[in-house]
Write a protein that binds this DNA or RNA. Structure first.
Lengths: 220, 220
DNA sequence: AGTATTTTACGTATTTATACTTAATTTATT
DNA sequence: AATAAATTAAGTATAAATACGTAAAATACT
């Protein structure tokens, strides 16, 4: 069996070196190229036709997500893997949407990283355990992901503050105001105020509709 | 911080011992109970109220999946984790549907296992990397999982009458009791009685949870 | 025809949510 | 330092939901 050829794209040389060192011990994996930004990653992939391109999500010129989406037209046989520090739902879903074969968190340990690369090379997607949560919840709440709904002003129309989102989340979990108040060490009146404000913002007039709308508009 | 209390359910003593040995080194995790089949797992959970119940998928009397589904009524605070040898799509999706917080493959290594338990204890779902593929594909190919064919007697546990379902549907639509009463030409008291009965049947104690459970259990 | 289930609805009491307003603190932003 | 935004929380009033128990009709099932 031939080695798995990798191209690493990350704007920090240090990070690239770290990953390279990590992979060096594994002798069926080989880093054949590196890139410092999205464009370069695509060009390198086009030239070297690696099996896998590891893309940092945050890079100059072009993000890893954009690069992942374009990868197949530069090197059809290469598979993109997104590397990220965050387990943000948006990112994970966008990665999926961009056709990425994996989404790895930066705190993934060596063993898992290698396991993931091998699995992906075998054609199976791999999402870090820390991220599977996002997929699971998305599936449970059964909205198939419709690629990015242009977070223009819609985001503002229903703009909720951090605290409001937190409380909304607890309401969605079926918690009573009293429970929420206790768990946040706040007065029940405060929670009531927040709920009132949330309902006003969402233009609804009862808790169930509030939850409905929150889920529908994905405000959590 | 207190330890994470675990109950292990697997029909093979050897497997239980293996897992126990694996977890022993971790000093914020403690195995407080064991069970050899699904029924026993539920009874043990009811008594010991562990944080997490690790359930082998294949067990005598009751499978891990069934036990996971019933766990919340035996020990509401406990989270179920399914342990399986297979990454079968059906199993994974059924685990999700049963409300499990995780799905771990039996070849999961020690580090990952512990990471998973901690993460799950923190309230975040964890699905083995080898399994995330299933979730990802399911999401991409966008058929939201419609809970398995005929859930045998589960149907009976939460059996709602036609009227109750009708009213539940209206509640889910965010209607107030007054509106429901008007649209059905019934008294508000009647609607209240129905709601009370529905909530008793679903073992919940507020409207949002009623809706949550109804959606989750697909009772409409 | 007789029994079981479902649907309807009242009583009574308690709790919780809704509907606003106002306003004192914190925390961010410029 | 000044302004804006967010968080907290009170007042006051009304409306609605929750928690049972009880029970008369209407339907369904054997």
């Amino acid at each position: 069996m031939s080695k798995i050829n990798i191209v690493l794209a990350d704007d920090h040389v240090l990070v690239r070196n770290g990953i390279k060192a990590m992979l060096e011990s594994e002798n069926d994996i080989r880093v054949i190229g590196e890139a410092g930004d999205g464009n370069e990653a695509l060009e390198t992939a086009k030239t070297l036709k690696p099996d896998i391109v590891v893309l940092d999500i945050r890079m100059p010129n072009m993000t890893g997500l954009e690069a992942a989406a374009k990868l197949k037209s530069y090197s059809p046989g290469s598979k993109a893997v997104i590397l990220s520090m965050h387990d943000s739902e948006e990112y994970v879903l966008q990665a999926l949407d961009a056709g990425a074969y994996g989404y790895l968190l930066k705190d993934t340990d060596k063993n898992e990283f290698i396991k993931a690369l091998k699995q992906i090379h075998g054609g199976t997607k791999y999402f870090s355990g820390g991220v599977s949560n996002v997929l699971a919840n998305r599936l449970l709440h059964t909205k198939p992901y419709t690629s990015a709904p242009a977070p223009t002003q819609k985001d503002d129309q229903y703009h909720l503050t951090k605290r409001e989102k937190e409380i909304l989340g607890l309401v969605i979990d079926g918690k009573h105001n009293k429970e929420i108040a206790d768990s946040l060490s706040k007065s029940v009146r405060t929670i009531e105020t927040h709920r009132f404000n949330i309902m006003k913002k969402l233009e609804v007039n009862n808790a169930v509709d509030m939850v409905n709308k929150a889920v529908k508009e994905n405000l959590l």
